[in-house]
C-alpha cells in the first residue's frame, strides 16, 4: 500500500480518472464502427480493459469493487461467449447454416444513423465482452495477488533472501 501512495501522485490519479471516460468512448466507437473502418469488438475490448488496468495501477485493486460494471466484468466473459454462441447457433435452429447473419446478404439493414443493426454487431458485442472480461479479470487477479504478496512478503523466497523479497516497484 505504502509504495503506491508514494509512487502515484495526485496528478497521475486525476489523469487516470479523466482518461477512463474517453478510453471507454473510443472503445465503444471502435466496436460499433468496426464494420466500416478499422477495428472491431476485439480491439475495443482490449482498449477498454487497458483503461481499467490503468485505474487499477493507479488506485489499487479496491477500485475494481467500486464500479459495478467492472465488478461484474469477469462474469461478462461468459455472457459474451454466450451471446456470440447464440448468434452462431440460433440460425441452425431455423434450419440455416451456422452464423448466418441477419439481415441476409444483400438486403438492407435497419439504420440508426450510420450504425447498422445486424446480428454481426451482436456477435462483435459478444467478442467485446469476452475480451473485456478477460482483461479486467486478469488485471484484478494480478492486483490481488500483488497485494497478498506484500502482506506475506518472504514466505516463498529462498532462505536468507527474505528481507529483499517484495521489493521492485
Amino acid at each position: 500500500m505504502s509504495d503506491r501512495t508514494v509512487t502515484t501522485t495526485v496528478l497521475t490519479q486525476v489523469a487516470a480518472r479523466i482518461l477512463l471516460i474517453p478510453i471507454f468512448v473510443v472503445a465503444i466507437g471502435i466496436m460499433i464502427k468496426g464494420y466500416v473502418d478499422i477495428g472491431d469488438g476485439f480491439s475495443a475490448g482490449v482498449i477498454a480493459s487497458l483503461g481499467v488496468a490503468l485505474q487499477v495501477m493507479v488506485f489499487g485493486p479496491e477500485e475494481l469493487t467500486r464500479l459495478p460494471v467492472i465488478q461484474r466484468a469477469p462474469k461478462g466473459t461468459f455472457l459474451g461467449l454466450l451471446i456470440a454462441l447464440l448468434t452462431a447457433f440460433v440460425p441452425a435452429v431455423r434450419g440455416q447454416p451456422l452464423m448466418t447473419h441477419w439481415p441476409p446478404a444483400g438486403e438492407a439493414a435497419i439504420h440508426f444513423g450510420t450504425v447498422e443493426f445486424i446480428t454481426a454487431v451482436a456477435f462483435d458485442v459478444g467478442v467485446f465482452l469476452v475480451v473485456f472480461g478477460f482483461g479486467v479479470g486478469v488485471t484484478a487477479t494480478l492486483a490481488r495477488a500483488q497485494e497478498r504478496k506484500s502482506s506475506m512478503a518472504g514466505l516463498f523466497s529462498r532462505p536468507g533472501d527474505a528481507g529483499e523479497a517484495g521489493e521492485r516497484s
Binding site: Q96, P97, T100, A105
Partner: peptide, 15 residues
Amino acid sequence: SMVIGGWEQGVGITL
C-alpha cells in the same frame, strides 16, 4: 457438409 454463414464454399468455413 455445411458452409458456415451460408456463403459459397471457400469463402465461408466449411464444416
